[in-house]
Simulated assay, not measured.
Amino acid sequence: MKKSAWLPAVIAPVVVAGAIAAPTLASAANDPIAGTNPTAADVIASVAKSSDAQYSGKLSQTSDLGLPELPAGSGGSSLEGDASDALSLLTSSHTARVYVDGATKQRVQVTQQLAEQDLVRNGSDVWTWDSKAREATHVTLPDHVKESFQDGTMTPADLAKQAIAAIRPSTTISKPTTTSVAGHDAWQLVLTPKSADTLVGSVELAVDKQTGLPLRAAIQADGQSEPAVQVGFTSLDYGAPAARLFDFTPPSGAEVTTKDLSDAADHAGSHRGAHGTGTDDAPTLTGSGWSTIAELPAGTADQGSLGADAQGLLGQLTRSVDGGRAIQTSLVSVYLTDDGRVLAGAVPVSSLVAAAK
């Protein structure tokens, strides 16, 4: 996998946070959360109102999963560059500049070791750019993705009720408390799994009181006092960013890959199938709630095709278990079976091994 493919892993909490719930609710009023004693549903509903937000800011992402810290890039080490870069996202801190102008214009810049990786969305056009590798990818989004941002058939209250109903069977939700993130007053929710079979201890979400924009998310592993993963704004200014920031032209001599998905069918329905059924693009899911396990089919992890350095790295980070090799961090476990399947989840390795049989 190319290094640029890991960029979404760094910036997903940013781009997704403003868009997962809000696009279908663009007609909702953009009033701040009413009153001084909102419910959890009120706070969740306010997130749905933030899709049209315009802002610029700086994000900080930290990870402490109990893995040894590795440098980004091979840097002369024996590690293969792509594997080292991917693992560095799980073992060290990163910062990113974020520019957002509504639901369909975003730019995220991740800078490290005199190199830059960018994700730029402008309407149906999405670009990724890796300055070190001088590689760019251009994707044209399908029509159904664009249309989904214009369907105003739900209200924020409807969405909040559905979200709360989906969460409550497996999760305890705290009453909102007051906090501050990057100089902005926010409501904080704490989601605590009811299941004892998950490695997740709790999730904290901070939401801007005035705009509904998610400002910080922290996942705490069971039994730990510090977040295993946290991403949040360290600075944030509201207002429309310069339009030029959402225009991207690959530099001369760059290697450009083009993917036109504009005519792709809407497979969303097939991805909403029951647990235990998968598609060519989606993993098979078993279990429920915080104990859900995702499985990719045989042939996904062909360990025999790895180079010597990658094989060595795999041997250092994983341990031999029944039927394959596995790694368990404080928050998530991954199991590579001898027949090439990959199972992962916020559960102990023993749960993955049992699910694979």
Results as ranks from 00 to 15, higher is better:
258 T>R: 08
306 L>M: 15
249 T>D: 11
251 P>S: 10
317 L>N: 03
320 S>D: 13
336 L>V: 08
258 T>Q: 04
329 T>N: 06
307 G>M: 03
298 A>C: 10
327 I>D: 02
326 A>Y: 02
307 G>K: 04
257 T>L: 08
329 T>W: 05
260 D>E: 02
312 G>A: 05
267 H>M: 14
258 T>N: 05
267 H>L: 14
326 A>F: 04
279 T>W: 02
275 H>E: 09
333 S>A: 12
260 D>S: 04
269 G>A: 15
261 L>N: 13
314 L>F: 14
274 A>D: 12
292 T>C: 05
337 T>E: 06
319 R>M: 06
288 S>I: 01
323 G>S: 10
331 L>T: 01
258 T>G: 00
315 G>V: 00
305 S>I: 03
309 D>M: 01
323 G>N: 10
282 A>P: 00
335 Y>G: 03
260 D>N: 12
287 G>D: 14
249 T>G: 06
339 D>L: 04
321 V>S: 02
318 T>A: 02
335 Y>T: 01
327 I>R: 07
257 T>A: 13
254 A>I: 00
299 G>P: 13
306 L>K: 09
268 A>Q: 10
296 L>W: 14
335 Y>I: 02
300 T>Y: 09
334 V>S: 08
300 T>R: 09
272 R>S: 11
242 A>I: 10
271 H>V: 12
329 T>S: 14
331 L>W: 04
319 R>D: 07
284 T>G: 07
260 D>Q: 03
283 P>K: 02
307 G>T: 06
338 D>E: 09
336 L>S: 09
271 H>G: 15
320 S>T: 14
296 L>R: 09
323 G>K: 09
313 L>H: 02
306 L>D: 12
324 G>R: 02
333 S>M: 02
291 S>G: 08
252 S>M: 06
326 A>I: 03
269 G>C: 03
306 L>C: 07
297 P>F: 10
295 E>F: 06
264 A>L: 06
298 A>I: 10
256 V>D: 00
290 W>H: 11
302 D>Y: 10
250 P>I: 14
260 D>P: 04
280 D>Q: 09
